[in-house]
Amino acid sequence: MITNKVWGVRLRTRARGRALVAGSLAGLVLWQVLAVIVGAVTTQGAHVVPPLPTIFTSGITGLSHFYKGGLGPATTIEGAPDSPGLAALAVGQNGLVTWGRFWAGYLLAVGLGLPAGLLVAGARPVRHAVGGVAGLLRMLPLLAMAPLFTLWFGATGRAGVLFVTFGAFWVVLLATSNAVANLPAHVTDYPRTLGLGPVRLRTRVVLPAILPQLRGALMLAAGTAWACVLASELYGIQSGLGWALNQTLVYSLVDQMIVLALLFAGLSLASLRLIDAVTGHLTRWTE
């Protein structure tokens, strides 16, 4: 990268780590100020905008209620008091469930969507036929259809996973078939002259060649999948971070709500980072 100042045309910005840190700190300070003001002027204030110390104490220990037992210690229903240990168990238990639902649904969507996209892209008529249908299904109000899956599969983890797959599948399918359609002919012509058959051509040549184009779609699919996990857990399913989040809404426990939202955000950020790193590694030949 050129470090010399560029005369005239230097209007390009970059992400700065310290801006992220400063922004997060500013957010915390702003929150605390807001909490103090709202707490001073309204009676329910501390409840609606809890101050930071509340969030970091009762916001965390209060999560003990979401521990369902089975891991040794007694639950709060059995009389155990709130404690950081129980809260950690609660977060571990529900976080793991949510994390598992995301990956199961997402990987299933990729595992089905990629081969389906490769097949669909093989023939132009099929591509048009499936492309139109997928385009319409993509426009359905996905998040509002979570109840449908609970109706079909009950308020179970399976409903959540299938809902996630349903949401992310179309993204992967459409992106794959578009990427194959946009692939220049010479990419497949040369391996064909080497005598590669249709299956090996797709797995060894086409798939790696479209992967750089697919990276964005795989991230978009992951974002969609997280929204689906959350929607399904907010609505109907009785476990996971989303379920706990809905409980805090029902009982207006804003301090715990914020901790849960942060945990959820952390999980989804971590998974997206992981997907970015893996796809980046697989496409490192392009850079």
């Binding site: 050129i2 010399n4 100042k5 560029v6 005369w7 005239g8 045309v9």
Partner: peptide
């Protein structure tokens, strides 16, 4: 050439 164009400031 970029210096002549004014696109790059010389050291």
């Amino acid at each position: 050439l970029r210096c002549l164009a004014g696109l790059l400031a010389p050291t």
